[in-house]
Each structure stands twice: as C-alpha cells, then as structure tokens.
Design a protein around this nucleic acid. Structure first.
Lengths: 264, 264
DNA sequence: TGTACATCAGTGAACGCGCGTTCACTGATGTAC
DNA sequence: TGTACATCAGTGAACGCGCGTTCACTGATGTAC
C-alpha cells in the first residue's frame, strides 16, 4: 500500500525523489528510512538546482556546468554524480518550475472562495503575472524558447510537468462547477470537438466534467493572461510606463470576469 | 527632396539598403545609381539572410556561421565582409522578421473595409496566428527568448523594428476612428496614465488620437492573440487536437469582437 | 567492539570538439588618366 | 583604347578559447561479520 503511494508521488522523475528526501521528517519511503547519505545527497541536488537557477538569472540562457560547480566550491565532473547530463539538469529545473507555478496558482485560488468565480479569476490572473515577474528567467525557461541544446522533443519531456500547471488552472472553474454553479460565458462558440476534450479533461479531475463552453472560457483566460505575461516579460510592452501596464492588466482582468460570465 | 525620401525609407538599418538595391529598377538612391557590384553585394546579403533563416528552421536556435557559408558554397570568413558579427546577422533577421510581420498585418487589414471593425479584428487575428504558424522559427526569433549570445540589451536593438509591428496593429482601430466611428469597448477601466500614452501614440499616427479605452481594447486584442500564438507555437496546446485549437481560436475572435465593441 | 570490505563523493588532468574570429594573401572587378 | 592602380570578394590556415564529458584515482563514509 505504501508502495503504491510512492509510485504515485514519485512521478518517474528523480527530482521529486530528492525533494522528498530533503525533509527528514517525511514518512518512510520505499522500505528503509532515508539514510544520512541519502539526505546529504538530496540536499546537494537541491543546492545544485538552486545554484543553477541563480546562474540562469545572472548569466542568461547559457548554463555552464563549470560555473555551477565553481560557485558551489566543487569541480565540474562532480556534478555528473547527480545529473547524467546538462539536459537532465535543465529538465529538472523545468519540472520544478512548473510545479512551483502550479503551487502558486493553487494557493492563490485557495485564498478565494470556491464558488466565487470573479474572485478566483482575479487571484489566478495576478498570481500568473506575479509568477512571471518574480523570476523572469524561470518564466523564460518554462515558456520561452527551448534552451540551446535542450530540444523540446528530447526524451527529457517536460510535458507531464506542464500538465500540472494546467491542472492547477482547471481548479479555477472546477470548484465553481462542483458547487453546482453554472456560469454562462459571454461567448459560447463551442466547436463540436470540445465535447470529446471535456471527457478527456474530466479524467484528471476526479471525473468532474467542466462544461465545454466554460472550459473554453478558461482557455481564453489562459491565452490572455499568458499573452500579457509574455509581452511584459520579454520586453514588448516597455514602451509604456509600468503604471500603464498595471492599469492595462486591471482592465484585462475586468474583461475576463465579464467574458467568463462571473458578473452573473 | 529625393534625399529626404530616402532618409525615410532607409531606416538606419543597412538591411533595408540591401532590399533596396536588389530591385534594379528602384529610383536612384543617394547620388549615384547602384553599381553592378552594389547589386551583387545586396543580393549576397539577401542570400545570406535567407540561408540563415533556413538554418534556423532546420537546426534550431544555434546558428553557425560555418554552416551558412558552407551551404552557400563559401567559407566562413567571407561572411565577415557582410556582417561584422554573428549578432549583427541575427539582428538583421529580427528587423526583417518584424517588417514581414508588419506587412502581413497591414495587408490583412487592407483586405477589410476601413470602418469594419469586426472584419478588421478577424483579419488581423488570423494574420497574426498564421504569421506564427507559417514559420515557427521566425516567430520564435522575434518573440521567444533572446537567442544565445544575442542580448536584448545589446546595441543591436530590435526595438524600433518591433515598433513597426505595433504601428501596423494600430491600423486596426485607427482607420475606424478616422472614419468618425467611436466603438464602445465592453470594458472601459481606463487608468489615468492612459491619457498621456494616447498622446504619445498619436505622434506616430499623423496625430490622430485613438481614444484611450479603444487603445486599451486593442492591447487586449494583442495580448489574447499573442498569448494564443505563443501557446500554440511553443507546444503548450498540443494536448488538444488541431481542430479544437481552431475552434478555440474562432471563439477567441468572437470574444474579441464583443470585447472591442465591434458588435455595435 | 573492532576489523575488512563496499560504496560513493569528489578531484585533477586531459581528451575532444567545434566554432567565432583574425590575418595575410590571391584573383577578379571596376576606375582613373 | 590601353595601361596602372585601387577596391573588394573570397580563400586557407591558424589562433584561441571554452566547455562538455571521461577516466583513473583518493579519501571519507557507511556496512557486514
């Protein structure tokens, strides 16, 4: 039984295993309690990733193994004890990044009432934007170009991790639907294929079906907020003052509230 | 007088000069007619850029001088006769890319009546999305991460070129306003700073002032469409069929039509 | 409790590679008298 | 019209650098009997 639990938690990514180990008080995994060595190792992995992210923030997209090692007071070859590859490290950073984003979104959503659609829209939008602004390098890592040498089609796929973010976003409307509410989006041009999509999506949400038009409005939300975040983050809105950007974003939230039918 | 014209056309970027030279029938520039050598040189520059774009498309973000040269039947050092730097070449590609995007948007807008706001919204949105899909590498070059080694803060700024795209987009609402129409956006939460912005923006549009709330709705349009294009282009919507993406985009256009007050 | 062995983190040196860029030079094209 | 010179595209070789990765080895930590 514990075994099955672990299978669920350790999502095939070594990284999660590391996070797990870090907390010495965690319930025993596999069969044995984590040894001291295990915990030290996990802490080192965490330090590598933290250092790598700092390097990304400071020196831009080209991440050098030697730099990370030097910064940690190690030599470069030592890193190969923890990550088989430069790609594997980058992949781990992406997995973590998506997880952090999912966390940021869910905790923002948790601060709003489950059936308060407008409040949830505001909370999620602000959280999304702030997640990007808080660490532009991380946002770039997740949503910018694939890093040099890190093909999106490589075996280190970040797809499942990105799915976690999407699942968190689905929480925006999911709890509203679960509370029996049925908001009417402003635009309900729902294509025929969306009935099938809704079924697929329901599978990751305990079977709760989100009506197709509501789900589409959620994707409108995503597109709008993501678009704003990308523009702002990649310097395409720098011809306007920051205050103007803030006001623009407020207006955009107001629009989304109406668009998703959260104004009754 | 001709001189002044040229100053306007040749926007301080050598690249445009090259395009100019290419057409042998162009009106004489500076003072002398372009010599044969000049035209050959311009054609070579064009070939380099075309080859470079193909390399970007085929081999991803890392653009190698040696590859370009080999593909053209030249040696790498020869390229330095045309571009001082790898950065300068990339910068030229970006300038061209933004210009192409501006062209695509304006010609799409020209296919709709000047006062038909809904038609212009549809035309521009589709053109924007198609521009991205037609050449994902080019779209990535313009809106993805800064390419490795190409700092956005380097002296080869692409700011002015990106501005051309924005100006093209302003054409969406500009002609409507010029025709005396005054659509009412759905959401009119216009912050105080936008009065100033409107003045600045008017300067690049022959002084025609676009009302602040309309301009904001244009930026909502940009954010939504850009967000969709980014998601679709960077593989974050691949968990849904292409048909569903099409339908989603249609719905998004419908929403923008309502949001910008194009449904009367 | 102590000894012998296994495991593992980390080192230092070196391989290998590839690419941006420079430089001296050739050969062709265009120009001035 | 022809000769002497200037300009410029392109070559080939080489510099220089830096980084990913491998490998044999050391020393410390943990484990079994």
């Amino acid at each position: 039984m514990l075994e099955t639990n672990c299978q669920g938690v350790i999502t095939s990514v070594m990284t999660c295993y590391a996070c797990f180990m870090l907390s010495a008080t965690a319930p025993d995994p596999d069969d044995k309690a984590p040894s001291r060595r295990d915990r030290v190792r996990a802490a080192t992995i965490e330090e590598i990733k933290t250092t790598a992210m700092r390097m990304l923030r400071e020196h831009g997209a080209d991440l050098r193994f030697a730099d990370i090692a030097r910064d940690m007071g190690m030599t470069a070859p030592a890193l190969y004890r923890y990550f088989a590859d430069r790609d594997e490290l980058l992949s781990a950073l992406m997995v973590d990044g998506f997880a952090e984003m999912a966390d940021a979104l869910t905790s923002a959503l948790d601060s709003a009432a489950p059936d308060d659609l407008a409040g949830r829209i505001r909370a999620a939008a602000i959280a999304y934007r702030d997640f990007a602004r808080a660490d532009p390098s991380r946002f770039s890592l997740l949503f910018g170009l694939p890093n040099p040498g890190f093909g999106r089609h490589s075996e280190h796929s970040s797809g499942p991790a990105a799915g976690a973010t999407m699942a968190a976003l689905e929480g925006l409307v999911l709890s509203v639907v679960e509370h029996g509410k049925r908001p009417t989006p402003l635009v309900r041009v729902v294509g025929t294929t969306w009935a099938d999509e809704a079924g697929t999506i329901a599978q990751r949400n305990d079977g709760t079906r989100i009506p197709a038009d509501i789900y589409q409005s959620l994707l409108h939300f995503l597109a709008a907020v993501h678009g704003f975040a990308c523009l702002e983050n990649f310097d395409h809105l720098n011809w306007v003052t920051e205050q103007s950007r803030d006001e623009l974003f407020d207006a955009q939230i107001a629009l989304l509230v109406v668009a998703m039918g959260a104004d009754q």
